[in-house]
Write a protein that binds this DNA or RNA. Structure first.
Length: 292
DNA sequence: CAGCAGGTGCAAG
DNA sequence: CTTGCACCTGCT
């Protein structure tokens, strides 16, 4: 273990933790259940637990947790054993990525739950981040379980496939997911019927896993790559949304290019680090409005 | 009020 | 295989 842990009441503190900036981690488009508090810290729910995360100088303070939960859940969730220094060194050989990494230096790719990512990214298709957050919040309040209160707000776990599968289209639509309600119900049923075992997909190749994911209605190339990147440690996945398309065309390709061609270009250029490259480029492009 | 955001499914070339 | 259009919702 490379990290230095202290505990203090319901807090776990990691001293001198590099490559971790809460704003970059939680606002780079990979997660939808974290909100900023008045003091600049972030509170969110994952794996049925409420956590608050704050940067304090060189340290990161994880509040509302225990050492046990920290080691059981949050080390994997934040991928704290990953050497981001090495990843950044490799990618920084490319001058454009060097710039993007300087901008989003504190990004870490989270290891989130497969089922939650499947549904979250189905909702994300043709949708904007505030709407996606709203829909996921409504789904959780309506069909998840109440797990507790933090700083005056109530929190709910993400609903299980079992808890959604027998709901009506209208009930799911009530959570403001729009035309995606049928995809959500269909996915819940496929998972409950064990047509696809989503927790086994991380053991398949990226290609095979993508093919399985795209059997879910509402999951295409972009959504499948997001699910793999954010819940299966598949760091060669390269999801291309409108911002990544813009930034790739603006800096690399210099002309309008099909998604298929950009996918091939990204895979060839960034290889096993394509997912990290994508994340730095996405955050850079989106925050700065590059290529718009 | 129309226009826009911005992935996927589906039909047609 | 590639292209063009419809689609919920909410904000301009």
């Amino acid at each position: 273990m490379k990290y230095n842990l202290n505990t203090e009441g319901n807090k776990v503190i990691m001293k001198n933790l590099k490559h971790f900036e809460p704003k970059h981690v939680f606002e780079c488009g990979q997660c939808f259940r974290w909100e900023i508090e008045e003091d600049g810290s972030y509170t969110g729910v994952a794996y049925g637990k409420i956590l608050n995360v704050r940067k304090d100088g060189e340290d990161i303070v994880f509040s509302n947790t225990s050492l046990e939960d920290f080691e059981e859940i949050w080390i994997d969730y934040f991928d704290l054993n990953r050497d981001y220094g090495e990843i950044k060194n490799k990618l920084s050989k490319d001058p454009i990525l060097k710039e993007a990494i300087g901008f989003g230096h504190g990004i870490r790719i989270l290891k989130q739950d497969e089922w939650e990512m499947l549904i979250s990214f189905i909702i994300s298709a043709n949708n904007r981040i505030p709407m996606i957050k709203k829909a996921i919040g409504l789904l959780s309040e309506s069909y998840g379980e109440y797990i507790g209160e933090y700083n005056g707000r109530k929190y709910y776990s993400f609903p299980t496939a079992e808890s959604l599968k027998d709901k009506s289209i209208e009930e799911i639509e009530g959570c403001k997911v729009g035309f995606r309600a049928k995809y959500i119900l269909n996915s819940a049923n496929m998972v409950c019927n064990k047509e696809i075992y989503i927790y086994g997909l991380k053991d398949l190749s990226t290609e095979a896993s993508r093919n399985e994911l795209m059997k879910f209605a509402g999951v295409g190339p972009k959504v499948s790559d997001c699910i793999m990147l954010f819940s299966m440690n598949k760091y060669d996945a390269f999801p291309i949304d409108v911002w990544v398309k813009r930034v790739m065309e603006y800096f690399y390709l210099k002309e309008d290019t099909s998604l298929k061609k950009i996918q091939e270009y990204g895979r060839d250029k960034f290889g096993e680090y394509a997912g990290y490259a994508q994340q730095y480029l996405f955050y850079y492009a989106r925050e700065l409005g590059i290529g718009k």
